[in-house]
C-alpha cells in the first residue's frame, strides 16, 4: 500500500516535472525541471529495487550532465523572447501527438500484453541481494567488451567536446616548452669584447 502511494506520488511529480521541462519559457527552469525528473525517476527505480542504477542516475545525470546543461544555458546569452515566437502555433499538434502516442502505447500494452502478464508485480528480492554485485558481475564478464567500447566512446566524446570548443585566440601569449628546452646559451647571451674607453 505504501509502495503504491509512493509510486503514484512520485509518478505525478515526474509527469508534472516533465510537463514543466517542455513548457518552460526559461531554459534554466526547464533544466531544473529536468533535474527534478531525474530525481523522481531515481526514487521510482529505487522502489522497484534497481538501486545501483538509481544512484548512477543521480550521480551522472543530476551531478554531471544537468550541471553541464546549466553551465551552457548560463554561458550563452540566449534571446528567450525570440525563441518563444511560434510557441503556441504548433502546441496543439504536440499535445495531439502526445495524446495519440500515449493512447496507442497503452493500447498496445493492454491489448497485446507483449507476451507478458503486465498486471504482475516484480518478484521480491532476498534481503542479501546486491544489485550492484549482480550488475557488476554482468558488466565485467559478459559485457566486458561492450564496457571497453563504452569507455572508448566516452574518451572520444571528451576529445570531441574539447576539440570542438577549443578556440585559438590571436595575440595570446603561450609557453612553448620544446622551444624553451631546446634553447642554447648563444641564443640568449652574446659576449662582446670591446676596448675600454678612456675616461674623458
Amino acid at each position: 500500500m505504501l509502495v503504491a502511494v509512493l509510486f503514484y506520488t512520485f509518478a505525478t511529480i515526474l509527469v508534472v516535472a516533465g510537463v514543466g521541462v517542455i513548457i518552460s519559457r526559461n531554459p534554466v527552469h526547464a533544466a531544473l525541471s529536468l533535474v527534478l525528473c531525474f530525481l523522481t525517476s531515481a526514487v521510482l527505480w529505487l522502489l522497484i529495487e534497481a538501486e545501483f542504477l538509481a544512484l548512477v542516475l543521480v550521480l551522472v545525470y543530476v551531478g554531471a550532465v544537468m550541471v553541464l546543461f546549466l553551465f551552457v544555458v548560463m554561458m550563452l546569452d540566449i534571446n528567450v523572447e525570440e525563441l518563444k515566437r511560434g510557441f503556441t502555433r504548433y502546441a496543439w499538434l504536440g499535445w495531439l501527438v502526445t495524446a495519440i502516442v500515449v493512447a496507442e502505447i497503452v493500447g498496445v500494452i493492454v491489448q497485446r500484453r507483449l507476451g507478458l502478464d503486465v498486471t504482475r508485480g516484480a518478484v521480491p528480492l532476498p534481503a542479501d541481494y546486491s544489485n550492484a554485485t549482480e550488475l557488476g558481475t554482468a558488466l565485467f564478464t559478459r559485457y566486458a567488451y561492450a564496457v571497453e567500447l563504452a569507455a572508448v566512446l566516452l574518451l572520444v566524446a571528451i576529445i570531441a567536446a574539447i576539440s570542438l570548443t577549443l578556440r585559438r585566440r590571436r595575440g595570446l601569449k603561450l609557453q612553448d616548452i620544446s622551444a624553451q628546452v631546446a634553447v642554447r646559451a648563444s641564443d640568449r647571451v652574446r659576449l662582446v669584447k670591446m676596448k675600454a674607453e678612456p675616461r674623458s
Binding site: V101, I105, G107, V108, Q111, R112, R113, L114
Partner: peptide, 22 residues
C-alpha cells in the same frame, strides 16, 4: 519519425502480427 512511430504502433494495435496475447 513520430508519424512513422504512430503508424507502426497503430499497425501493431489494430492489424499487425505482434506477439500473441497471453
Amino acid at each position: 519519425m513520430i508519424v512513422g512511430l504512430v503508424l507502426i504502433l497503430g499497425w501493431l494495435l489494430f492489424a499487425g502480427a505482434g506477439p500473441a496475447a497471453q
